[in-house]
Design a protein around this nucleic acid. Structure first.
Lengths: 114, 114
DNA sequence: TCTATTTATCGTCTTATGGCGATAAGTTTA
DNA sequence: TAAACTTATCGCCATAAGACGATAAATAGA
């Protein structure tokens, strides 16, 4: 029933990470646990939108959640998630430098056109 | 114009990876370059669907493409992408073992109910 | 208890995504 | 050149995803 394969979880984790707002949320929470009312003013998104995004990260087991009185506190469950993001960034940086290199080479010949 | 920030590319890469068929395609291509007509029979998806998925991976700069006569050959551009996937898997496995552990503990008390 | 605060959820809208078949465009072979 | 092959693209449909405001539910404070 709750039987989940690694590939299912894999897609779930990657889907949860493939949104700019959610990546920002993770970055924001890298500073430590925060309640929703602290998070809200840092994002220009409606409360319902932020709540939904937080829930997606929670469902993907990336965030932990605890209720403290009338507020809910979220925090990173496993900092390894940042390793993943860092590695993606490293790939992205590689792409950018390759693109820059290609542009440089291409630029030379383009400068010689009419 | 072609100006892309790391965060844009980051999302693009992660989005490209967050689909089961595309992850399968990467796994399939880990064995080396393959033309589309080799890939097709290994997947139960229409030719147009596979072509679109391959193009998404290509646009995310994850796959390389070269035309060889009447066929197109795709290959992994940077094997580092597998490092990312491996790391996601490791997170997923962690989640599964935690879940199993929680289930084991919960199981004990559940066995003592009516 | 009444009110304010906090957060999740619901309903709705718009856009994005994944799937398919049909078609186009290019290459090879007959 | 005609036919066959290979692959990308187009148009369409169904569903998913992201956004919002309104509302609900729970707690804290007056």
């Amino acid at each position: 029933m709750t039987q989940k394969s690694v590939s299912d979880l894999r897609v779930k984790i990657l889907s949860a990470l493939s949104d700019p707002t959610r990546l920002q949320l993770l970055e924001y929470l890298s500073g430590g646990e925060r309640c929703v009312c602290e998070i809200l003013p840092a994002f220009q998104r409606s409360q319902s939108t932020i709540s939904k995004h937080l829930n997606i990260l929670y469902e993907a087991d990336i965030l932990e959640r605890k209720v403290d009185g009338k507020r809910t506190v979220y925090c990173i469950k496993d900092p390894q998630v940042f390793e993943i993001i860092r590695m993606v960034d490293s790939l992205a940086l590689m792409q950018i430098s390759q693109l820059a290199e290609a542009g440089r080479i291409l630029g030379k010949s383009l400068n010689n056109r009419s």
